[in-house]
């Protein structure tokens, strides 16, 4: 399970970075989304994928005895997902707007700012 996840995270990171390096704006956004998913899975993996019960002490004992699953990574992933969702939706709108104004989705042709100096 861990090995499988690790390979998948590697593929996601590689694909994301490859997509970010492309010149097309749409591929740029896809790359960012893939990279974000890779990072979220990485938190999940490094929070240790173990079979464990939730960290709740049963009513008839005072201490928790068996292995418990760490709840923190899930909270972290949830936060990160929400944040990256917001950023990605902003990015999509921005790219659409930029495409309408600049009339190209090629990053290399977006150099009007270099000319007016």
């Amino acid at each position: 399970m861990e090995v499988l996840l690790a390979i998948m995270i590697g593929i996601l990171y590689a694909a994301g970075i490859y997509m970010i390096l492309r010149r097309s704006l749409v591929k740029l956004i896809l790359g960012i989304i893939i990279l974000g998913n890779g990072a979220n899975l990485l938190i999940f993996l490094l929070g240790r994928v173990v079979k464990g019960s939730p960290p709740i002490i049963p009513a008839d004992s005072d201490v928790f005895q068996s292995v418990y699953a760490d709840p923190v990574p899930q909270a972290l992933i949830l936060t990160a997902i929400v944040i990256s969702f917001g950023l990605q939706s902003f990015a999509i709108i921005l790219v659409k707007r930029a495409y309408k104004v600049v009339k190209t989705d090629d990053l290399d042709e977006m150099n009007a700012i270099d000319k007016d100096s």
């Binding site: 974000g36 923190v72 990015a91 150099n111 009007a112 700012i113």
Partner: peptide, 30 residues
């Protein structure tokens, strides 16, 4: 126009930095 072109570069690099930061936090937590 210039603002949008500048901000495409700005947001790409900043989101990338956030992702790397998140990766670093993940490794640190691990």
């Amino acid at each position: 126009k210039a603002q949008l072109e500048g901000s495409v570069k700005y947001f790409t690099l900043n989101i990338l930095a956030s992702m790397i930061f998140l990766t670093a936090i993940a490794v640190l937590y691990g």
